[in-house]
């Protein structure tokens, strides 16, 4: 890559009086003032935020929440890929371990014991949603998250599931169970 030296032109006598920049500044500021000042008959061009709320478009990347399937079961299987991929390390999953509660849906052996997202750390990048093999975490439309303490801003599994709602999809574990039942193999007896 070559560099290009841009020559700085010496100011002309007229420019050295600062008059052109004075006039330029005046015209720019006046244009904006004329456009905005309400006593010149302008309507506000900004949105009055807390009263007026913005229509969040589809595909907006807001806060990530966990979702349940159409049977109301936790979709997350605690594979921890989101925890791994999370750039600011906002996600922290406690796996169930050998004695943990089995998944609350048919045939999936595992669900997280605890799933925490630190919303103060989260940067809403959406990598967790992209990496999730179970379609269990989605960036939803919430953008204004507030709390009165740091602890309050760490959302736990229960809260995330409640906020996340339901996301219907292919229930692959349920499908596997049905297939297995047809073959008279009963691989797992959870739920």
């Amino acid at each position: 890559m070559s560099t290009k030296v841009v020559e700085r032109k010496p100011l002309t006598a007229y420019e050295r009086t600062y008059l052109p920049s004075f006039l330029g500044g005046l015209s720019v500021t006046w244009k904006h003032f004329k456009k905005t000042a309400p006593f010149l008959g302008n309507k506000p061009i900004t949105m009055e935020y807390p009263e007026q709320k913005w229509v969040v478009p589809e595909g907006y990347r807001g806060a990530p929440y966990l979702v349940k399937d159409q049977d109301g079961a936790t979709k997350c299987v605690s594979c921890q890929l989101c925890e791994f991929v999370c750039p600011p390390k906002a996600i922290r999953i406690t796996p169930p371990g050998q004695d943990g509660k089995p998944a609350d849906r048919s045939n999936a052996e595992k669900m997280p014991k605890e799933f925490e997202i630190n919303m103060l750390r989260c940067i809403f990048c959406g990598l967790c949603q992209e990496v999730c093999p179970e379609e269990a975490i989605f960036l939803q439309k919430d953008y204004s998250l507030t709390g009165t303490s740091r602890e309050e801003m760490i959302y736990d599994k229960e809260k995330l599931l409640k906020l996340g709602g339901t996301h219907a999809g292919i229930q692959k574990w349920k499908h596997k169970l049905e297939e297995a039942s047809e073959q008279e193999v009963f691989p797992l007896t959870t739920t």
Partner: peptide, 10 residues
């Protein structure tokens, strides 16, 4: 106020 108006704010 004047600053806000010059900057298209409220």
């Amino acid at each position: 106020k004047v600053s806000a108006w010059i900057q298209d704010r409220v």
